[in-house]
Computed example of a mutant assay.
Amino acid sequence: MPRKDGKRNFVLIEDDDEETSVFSGQYPRQAALKAARRLHPAPSRDEVDGKATLRLRERGTDRVHVYEGWAWTESKSDDDPEWMGDSVTRANVSKQGIEHLDE
């Protein structure tokens, strides 16, 4: 169910079907991008060699959004704030589909 501000909660499902972290966003892709930034990043965008499968269950439903995600680090730009440090983790995701839980 969406909150008053339109955001929905998505729970990350690990390989052992344990639900761990909660990510929020108006769209499932926003939550998947937040989850992908927690992956082990590659040194650069060109050196990304593996993609992780991210399964996000929307709270209050039986829908599981499945994404492939990957992350990399890059130097921060001049526009980025000082507190971010010297490098920034970027991420991208690709939707693989929607599954429905059988309960």
Rank of each mutant, 00 (worst) to 15 (best):
G50I: 11
R8Q: 07
E103M: 03
D62L: 02
S24D: 14
A42Q: 00
L12V: 01
D62Y: 08
D15A: 07
T20V: 06
V64T: 04
K95H: 14
A91S: 14
D46M: 14
R29N: 15
R38M: 08
P2F: 10
F10G: 01
L56H: 08
A31P: 09
D80W: 00
S21P: 03
A91V: 05
W72R: 02
D79G: 03
V66Q: 10
S77E: 04
I98M: 05
D15E: 11
V11M: 03
S44V: 03
R55S: 11
A52R: 11
D49P: 03
D86P: 15
Y67I: 10
R37T: 05
D86Q: 15
G97V: 11
R3Q: 10
D102T: 04
A42I: 08
E68R: 13
R3E: 12
D102F: 04
D62P: 00
D79W: 05
T73V: 10
Y67T: 06
T61A: 02
I98L: 09
W72S: 02
R38Q: 06
S94D: 15
D102Q: 04
D102R: 02
T61S: 11
R90E: 02
S75E: 09
R37M: 06
R57E: 13
S21K: 09
L56M: 13
R37P: 04
P28Y: 14
E99C: 00
V66L: 11
R55L: 12
E47F: 12
E103H: 08
V11D: 01
L101K: 08
K7M: 07
V48R: 03
E103Q: 05
D46G: 05
I13L: 06
A32C: 13
L54C: 10
H65S: 06
R55V: 09
T89F: 03
W70V: 02
D46N: 12
D86T: 15
G97W: 15
H40W: 02
L39Q: 03
E103A: 04
E68M: 10
E103I: 00
G69N: 01
F10D: 02
E47H: 12
V88H: 12
G50C: 13
E14L: 02
G50K: 14
K7P: 02
E82V: 11
R3Y: 10
D78S: 06
R38L: 09
W70F: 10
A52H: 12
D62K: 08
L12F: 04
R29M: 15
T73E: 08
T53A: 12
E19D: 12
E47D: 15
E99H: 07
E74N: 05
V64A: 09
D16K: 02
P41S: 07
L56V: 09
A42Y: 01
A35C: 11
R90Y: 02
A32I: 08
D46Y: 13
Y27M: 15
F10A: 05
T89N: 00
D49W: 13
H40D: 06
H40C: 06
D49T: 11
L33T: 09
G97C: 13
K34V: 01
E68G: 03
A31W: 07
R8G: 05
G60D: 07
D78T: 01
K51M: 14
A35M: 01
K7V: 04
S21T: 09
G6M: 09
L54G: 04
R57T: 08
R59S: 14
P2V: 09
S77R: 07
T53V: 15
V93T: 15
R57H: 12
V88D: 07
K76N: 00
W70S: 07
V11W: 01
R38F: 02
T89Q: 00
